[in-house]
Amino acid sequence: MKAFALLLALTMGPTWAETWPEPDWPIDNAAFDWQSVDSYAFPERNAGERSGIRTDALLIIRDGRILHERYIAPTTADTAHLTWSVSKSVLATVLGVAQGEGRFQLQDPAARYYPPMQAHPDVRLADLLHWASGLDWQEDYEYAPLKSSVVAMLYTRGRNDMAAYTAARNTAEKPGQRFLYSSGDSNVLAGALRGMLDAGSYADYPWQALFTPLSIESAVWERDGAGNFVGSSYLYLSARDLARIGLLMQRDGRWQGRQLLPASWVAFNRTLFDQAAAMPGEANPGGHWWLNRPMPGSPTPWPDAPTDTYAALGHWGQALYIVPSQKLLIVRYADDRGASYSHNELLKRVLAALAGEGA
């Protein structure tokens, strides 16, 4: 028995030696100068002013330990904050568990699991995960609300069945050929997930598959009138709980001694969709995550961050950044209403602080 225990320890030792947030995140008390980071992320707010950088929460974690954490009222460490389009990457993570259970393959047609997509039989699940369904779509919010597909889907004509609203869109081009960011694609995926599961299990599946194994307790995920999760937009999580998903991804789908996500799924999430067009100032699309990898002939989106950096990003400044080469996670919640915030600038300042360079 002792020999077996020793063999098991030698086999599992590297996994057990890693720090995990059980029951909560441990704190690393190493002294870093966060003044430059905080001065950027938390400028003074004038009462009633809606412009500028408006950070609600900032959480910096390295190798499983919290290095820095700050909140602005009313947000606290326990607040389940609206993540907006960070929801899309979490949906992709839930789908990764389903894929590991053998429920689908990336090349499967979406219509196999979501019958309204029979009008678009050539759209594969991989196309939806690349935001490349080829469906006609307009993602603008504030700038073109009367022409916006996403506003209609979330708040008017499509709110009772968001996936069906998307599936009823016309085909604009051949699927898989061009990136076109679409919250509709994400909600078709949420509908397809339902078709992959046994009857009655859909409502609990994100918890069974992901949240409960990661000890996430703050999650609230809204559903539309048809009962499908609003996979594009309406997941709420505390910063510490979102960071748990970041740690799972940073460690290639492992959670303690369990391979919760296939490592191949994480690799897919982090693979550049090279049919996309570069988006200056933003990251480039992977499998429902955003990558700091440059397009051929284009600059690195965030030049002061390592190219292995990737992120889940949401409206008004929500972000989960993952830097595997630095074993680094950053969660930022915000209420930015303008275009003054820079992903690169925050990453640059955090990395400088970790390197001991100061302001």
Rank of each mutant, 00 (worst) to 15 (best):
G297W: 05
G356T: 00
V90G: 02
D33F: 10
P213I: 04
T15V: 09
F104S: 01
E69P: 04
E173H: 15
A41M: 06
G231K: 05
W265V: 05
L59H: 14
N344P: 01
A319F: 13
S85D: 04
L291P: 06
V266T: 14
H81Q: 13
R332P: 00
Y236T: 08
A209D: 03
F104C: 00
Y333N: 14
S36A: 14
A30E: 09
R240E: 10
P296T: 02
G297E: 04
S298A: 13
A359G: 09
L320K: 04
L82P: 11
Q105H: 12
P299F: 02
W137P: 02
D335N: 15
R223I: 12
D78L: 02
N269L: 13
Q177M: 14
L154S: 02
R62C: 08
A190F: 04
P303M: 06
S133H: 08
P21H: 01
N344A: 00
S39C: 10
I330C: 10
P285Q: 09
M153D: 01
R159D: 03
Y40E: 01
I27Y: 08
H315E: 11
S340F: 00
Y236M: 08
P299D: 02
N187K: 04
Q138C: 10
V151N: 10
G297A: 05
I322V: 07
S201E: 07
D335A: 15
V188F: 07
M249W: 13
S87R: 12
A267H: 14
H130I: 13
M117G: 01
R293A: 15
R240Y: 11
P306A: 07
L260N: 09
W25G: 00
A152G: 07
E142S: 11
P285S: 08
L7A: 11
D335F: 14
A132P: 03
T309V: 05
F211Y: 11
Q177T: 15
T271A: 04
G96D: 03
M12L: 13
D140H: 09
D185T: 03
G314E: 08
G158P: 06
L8F: 10
I245V: 12
P109W: 07
A92R: 07
L313A: 12
A172G: 12
Q138G: 09
G231A: 03
N29T: 12
S233P: 00
R240V: 10
A339I: 13
W265A: 05
P303E: 01
L106T: 01
R45E: 11
L248F: 03
A126Y: 08
F42R: 02
A319P: 11
A199D: 15
L320M: 06
L154C: 06
S186E: 07
D38C: 03
A263G: 11
A119E: 10
S232C: 05
L237A: 04
Q275N: 12
P145H: 11
D204M: 15
T171I: 14
G246H: 05
A152H: 14
A57Q: 11
F32S: 10
P23W: 12
A168L: 10
P213A: 01
A355V: 07
S182T: 00
G286Q: 05
V230N: 15
G64Y: 00
L193P: 04
G231I: 08
R194H: 05
Y143S: 09
D308E: 09
L248E: 11
A172L: 12
S264I: 02
A41E: 03
A190D: 06
G257Q: 12
V86R: 06
M153P: 04
A92L: 07
I53M: 10
D335L: 15
D161E: 05
L82M: 07
A17L: 11
A73C: 07
G176S: 03
